[in-house]
C-alpha cells in the first residue's frame, strides 16, 4: 500500500514569491527571516522523499464560480496549468505548469464517493495560488505529480467545519489504502485570522492575534476536540472576514490525526497576517 510520508499544513501568502526574490531597496525588512523559515520548512518535505503530492487548497474565484459552485472538488487531469492574470498583476506570481497523477485522483474520487463524500471533479483545472504558493515554498522545482483538492471556504453556504475534518480523515485513510508503492505527502494550506476587503485589513499584524495563538496551539497539538468545540461557521466571521480558510487547517488536522503532535512548528508575525508552518511525520514512515 501507499505510504503517507509527510502531512504538511501552512498558510499561503501570495507575497512570499516576490519578497523572496526582491533585493536592494525593494527587499522588505522581514524578507530574510521569512526566507530562512521557509527554507527550514522546505527541508521537512524534502527529507520525506515523496513521489506524489496531494494538495488541498481553495480556488479564489478563478475557475470556480457562483453559477456552479462545488463544495469539495478533486482535479483529475494529466497536467495543470497554474496561476491567473490577476495573481500575476497583484502578487507578481509566475505562470506554472505541473504534472497530475490521474491514477491517484481517480482512486480518491471513486473511494471518496463510496466513503460518503459526493465529490465534484474537474478534467481541466487551472490551479491558483492556494496550491502554487505551497509549491513555491515547499517544492519550487515543481517536479512531482500532484492531486489537487479544492474546498469551498469562500462562497457561502459553506460545509460545516466537521465535514472538513471528516474529509481530512478520509483522505488519509484512502491514501493509505491505495494499492501502490508510492510515497505520498499530503499538503494543505489555509489561513489563521485574516481580513480582506474589510475595516481590519492590512493592519500591523493579523486581525485577531488571540485567535492565531489559540489556533497554532490546536494545530500543533492536534487538538481537534477543542477546535471543533470552539469553531463554527458563525464564529469564524469574528476573527476576520476571510478566516473561514482556517477550515483547510482543520481538514489537515483531520489528515494528521486526533491529538497528533506536529514534528515541525513555526510561525512568523507578518504585517496583516500570522504565517504558520506545520509538518507531521506519520509514525510508520521510514
Amino acid at each position: 500500500m501507499a505510504q503517507v510520508v509527510a502531512v504538511i499544513a501552512s498558510t499561503h501568502h501570495p507575497f512570499y514569491y516576490k519578497a523572496a526574490a526582491s533585493s536592494g531597496d525593494d527587499r522588505p525588512p522581514f524578507a530574510d527571516e521569512w526566507v530562512a523559515k521557509i527554507e527550514a520548512f522546505r527541508q521537512t518535505l524534502t527529507r520525506a522523499r515523496p513521489d506524489v503530492l496531494v494538495m488541498v487548497g481553495s480556488d479564489h474565484f478563478h475557475q470556480l464560480w457562483l453559477d456552479n459552485m462545488p463544495q469539495f472538488l478533486i482535479g483529475k487531469a494529466p497536467f495543470y496549468d497554474a496561476n491567473f492574470y490577476n495573481e500575476e498583476r497583484e502578487f507578481g506570481l509566475p505562470r506554472m505548469f505541473v504534472h497530475g497523477h490521474e491514477e491517484l485522483s481517480a482512486y480518491l474520487l471513486r473511494e471518496g464517493m463510496d466513503a460518503g463524500f459526493d465529490l465534484a471533479f474537474s478534467n481541466e483545472l487551472r490551479i491558483d495560488h492556494s496550491i502554487t504558493c505551497p509549491l513555491i515554498t515547499l517544492r519550487p522545482q515543481a517536479d512531482l505529480p500532484i492531486v489537487p483538492i479544492y474546498t469551498n471556504i469562500f462562497a457561502p453556504p459553506l460545509p460545516q467545519p466537521k465535514r472538513f475534518v471528516e474529509l481530512g480523515k478520509t483522505i488519509r485513510r484512502l491514501v493509505e489504502s491505495w494499492p501502490s508503492d508510492q510515497r505520498v505527502a499530503i499538503i494543505g494550506t489555509g489561513h489563521l485570522s485574516l481580513e480582506l476587503g474589510g475595516p481590519r485589513q492590512f493592519g500591523p499584524h493579523g486581525p485577531d492575534p488571540e485567535f492565531d495563538r489559540q489556533a497554532v496551539e490546536w494545530i500543533a497539538t492536534g487538538d481537534l476536540a477543542s477546535a471543533l468545540a470552539q469553531v463554527s461557521l458563525d464564529s469564524l466571521w469574528l476573527p476576520g472576514n476571510a478566516t473561514h480558510g482556517f477550515m483547510d487547517f482543520m481538514l489537515m488536522m483531520g489528515v494528521a490525526g486526533e491529538n497528533a503532535k506536529a514534528d515541525h512548528v513555526d510561525s512568523l508575525d507578518l504585517f496583516h497576517t500570522m504565517e504558520a508552518y506545520f509538518t507531521w511525520y506519520p509514525k510508520a514512515a521510514a
Binding site: F61, E90, G197, G198, N241
Partner: peptide
C-alpha cells in the same frame, strides 16, 4: 463579496 471587491479595487 469582500475578496472580489478588494482585488478589483486594488487593480
Amino acid at each position: 463579496h469582500n475578496f472580489l471587491l478588494l482585488t478589483l479595487f486594488i487593480a
